[in-house]
């Protein structure tokens, strides 16, 4: 393994020193990830980068720039050259959620959408003693006890909170959000009984659903999630339009050459559907989902507008 990377590195160094004028890409690509090393975004981007390296025949250097809920990395990336050698692997929150609550230097126009890669829903779970057994019962219990229940989430104004509040607002529910540093921390406090409801990613809570300690009653996607048979999708509850997902995408800087976008999005589509990568996504509770080019731009804009409305309702917006 080490030998292989050393070899790849060495060959790129040799390739670098030869002034060959081949077609794109002819030198290593730098991939910025707006999160610290080790998180969900980071691992899925790194796995994908290995496949892309093979397909593109060049090495990809990963740069982690965490902080500010992804806005630090996004702001730093915005300033890179649009020559196709700087790419940005992000999840949706820094682009559609963070600008609602923070003053950021970028907007959706600061990037060129290339392709989305995968998506997953958030889930809301309760302890096994909770007096409800399905999604509708869960919402009814919460609605009839305003202010009684606390739910852990990934941070004030984070996508998870907005996803939940979107549903709660539609059902006139008043639950108290408790922000934590991430799904792992939320889970620990949920299991210890410090918050009543777990809100976060599916893969984190899954082991405790399997051993019966927790039951997940709601997912934030329109469709049901096979891994959580007890949970209702939003379509079954008649709220398909309130769907909020966690999804990942690769973007370029503003005004990236359409030919490069085309080449990259095609390569990404093949890489994402690689059986090994699909298998990897499955362990994280994610499924491949490729939306390319301008369609991705439209998806971002739609999500941005919907979340702007929710955060205005919460009094969070800037």
């Amino acid at each position: 393994m080490k030998m292989k990377t050393a070899f790849v590195g060495l060959t790129t160094v040799i390739a670098l020193s030869l002034p060959a004028q081949a077609e794109y890409p002819e030198r290593p690509i730098e991939l910025t990830i707006p999160a610290g090393a080790g998180g969900g975004t980071d691992t899925s981007a790194r796995k994908l980068a290995i496949l892309l390296e093979e397909a593109l025949g060049t090495s990809i250097a990963i740069l982690n720039v965490g902080g500010g809920g992804g806005s630090v990395g996004a702001s730093q990336f915005m300033q890179s050259k649009n020559d196709g050698y700087s790419l940005f692997a992000t999840w949706n929150s820094p682009l559609t959620t963070v600008p609602q609550v923070q003053n950021v230097a970028y907007s959706l126009d600061s990037f060129t959408p290339i392709a989305s890669t995968s998506e997953t829903a958030y889930t809301l779970c309760v302890k096994s003693v909770f007096p409800a057994e399905n999604g509708q019962g869960f919402l009814d219990e919460l609605a009839s006890n305003p202010g009684k229940y606390t739910y852990g989430n990934d941070g004030i104004g984070g996508t998870m909170q907005l996803a939940a509040e979107r549903i709660f607002q539609a059902n006139k529910i008043d639950a108290i959000p408790i922000p934590f540093g991430g799904a792992g921390e939320t889970l620990q406090n949920f299991l210890g009984g410090h918050v009543d409801i777990y809100g976060g990613s599916i893969s984190t809570v899954l082991p405790y659903v399997e051993n019966g300690e927790a039951k997940c009653l709601l997912v934030t996607s329109a469709a049901d999630v096979p891994a959580l048979p007890q949970a209702s999708g939003l379509e079954a509850l008649g709220m398909a339009d309130k769907e909020t997902l966690l999804w990942r995408a690769i973007l370029g800087p503003k005004d990236l050459d359409p030919a490069i976008v085309k080449k990259l999005s095609d390569v990404i589509e093949t890489a994402v559907n690689d059986p090994g990568y699909v298998e990897f996504l499955k362990t994280k509770g994610e499924v491949p989902n490729v939306v390319k080019g301008p369609d991705l731009g439209a998806r971002l804009q739609a999500e941005f507008d919907a979340l702007a409305e929710v955060s205005k309702g919460l009094g969070l917006s800037q």
Partner: peptide, 10 residues
Amino acid sequence: IGIDSLSGQA
């Protein structure tokens, strides 16, 4: 220093 994770205040 930085964004306060509980209120979004910089």
